[in-house]
Computed example of a mutant assay.
Amino acid sequence: MNDHRPAPAEAASASPAVSSSARRSAEKAAEEAAEVRRFWGRLGLPGLIDVHTHFMPERVLNKVWEYFDARGPLTGGLAWPISYRQREAERAAVLRRFGVRAFTAMLYPHKPGMARWLNDWAAGFARRTPDCLHTATLFPEPGVETYVREAIEAGARVFKAHVQVGAYDPADELLRPAWGVLAEARVPVVIHCGSGPAPGKHTGPGPIARVLARHPRLRLIVAHLGMPEYEDFLGLAERYQEIRLDTTMAFTDFTEALTPFPRRALPRLAALGDRVLLGSDFPNIPYPYLHQLQALERLDLGEEWLRAVCHDNAAELFGPA
């Protein structure tokens, strides 16, 4: 019998090392949670609302992580270690320890026939996770208007659209009735439509401008502040009163090294302070969650701006968390 189990003495010596590593990890996690809570506590907030967090079926999320690990083309070939590679329940618990009072389940299809199934999963996740804003998604395909309407009737409070991953034109005629339903229902859509970290055939402000020309009351939340076309998307937000932007990954050291936000545009961002929302991309971020908050604070746009971005704007949009 080929038994490689350690002798009792070896096992005893290995055990403290394992427990010591786990203890250090737990201590580090507790320290970060305490720092996050101190951040929003100093601002006099009851917590945070994060409109850009990812929860999806485990096998789908594992595929996403594998893509990041492989430095797939849509990541721009960047090294992208996942900071919170944990199971679903533990990821939700991490957000709660941070004091995130409401978060989302940003999920998205990359091909036809996938969105309705994802919406069914998301409805179940929302039922078992009451602090998650019930999230749904869509794709340009026959029947999209029907399942978007069904998702709204089932309680969806926010949608996710990913132009880059889905490789579709948001102005596609197949989506036109679905955008109309969403505009009429006043349900926000977090949409990744900027060309970062890698451009797609239909990314950038042009396709979205065509959508808004048809549906000026559509509540789009432009993910990542529209990076790298920051100023173009600020322009759309200045033109359309229902356009909002989320801060996902913006201003972090990781992003600033690649696609820095132009400092000349900070006054415009400050002026749109009532339509900028906290987003993080948790758990798919290559740095601690705390760093996103610190990156916003060091903009020095003031505590009133931070309070609005980190909680109040989303609370007004979605209702108290």
Rank of each mutant, 00 (worst) to 15 (best):
E90L: 14
A161D: 01
P6W: 07
R239E: 13
V181A: 15
R59L: 13
H291A: 11
G77Q: 05
M114P: 00
Y84M: 10
P197Q: 07
L277N: 01
V94P: 00
E10K: 12
V36F: 01
P207Y: 04
S21Q: 14
W305V: 05
E88L: 15
T203V: 04
P216E: 05
R128Y: 12
E66I: 01
Y84I: 00
P8C: 03
G180E: 07
G166C: 09
S13D: 15
I221C: 11
F39W: 14
R298L: 12
P199S: 13
L212H: 01
L225E: 01
A92Q: 14
P286N: 05
V222Y: 00
L306C: 09
A185V: 02
V276C: 07
A271I: 04
A270R: 15
L218T: 02
G143M: 13
Y240Q: 00
L78W: 03
Y287K: 07
D253A: 14
P57V: 08
D172W: 08
P130T: 09
E153N: 07
H162R: 06
L78H: 06
N119F: 02
F68W: 06
L301E: 13
V222M: 05
T259N: 13
E304R: 11
N119A: 04
E32P: 02
A70F: 04
A265F: 09
H291K: 12
A93L: 13
W179V: 03
A33H: 02
V144H: 10
F68P: 03
L61V: 06
E66W: 09
I285Q: 11
R244M: 10
Q292K: 11
F233T: 00
G204C: 06
M114C: 04
G113A: 03
D232S: 13
A14L: 15
L236G: 04
N2D: 09
R268A: 15
E145A: 15
T248F: 09
G279E: 10
P283Q: 08
P57I: 12
L299T: 05
V148Y: 03
I82A: 03
A185M: 05
V163W: 02
F261H: 10
M249Y: 10
V190G: 02
G302Y: 07
K160S: 06
V189D: 06
Y230S: 04
A198T: 11
G319W: 08
G72H: 07
A321V: 08
T53R: 10
P197A: 06
L78P: 00
P320F: 08
E145Q: 15
A34Y: 00
R307C: 11
G235V: 09
A89L: 15
E10T: 07
E27T: 04
R127W: 09
A22H: 09
E31K: 07
T53C: 15
A156Q: 04
T247A: 12
V51S: 03
R268P: 08
E150V: 02
R176Q: 14
S280R: 09
A14S: 09
A156L: 08
V18W: 12
A136E: 06
P207E: 09
R217E: 14
E88Q: 14
N62H: 13
A11G: 12
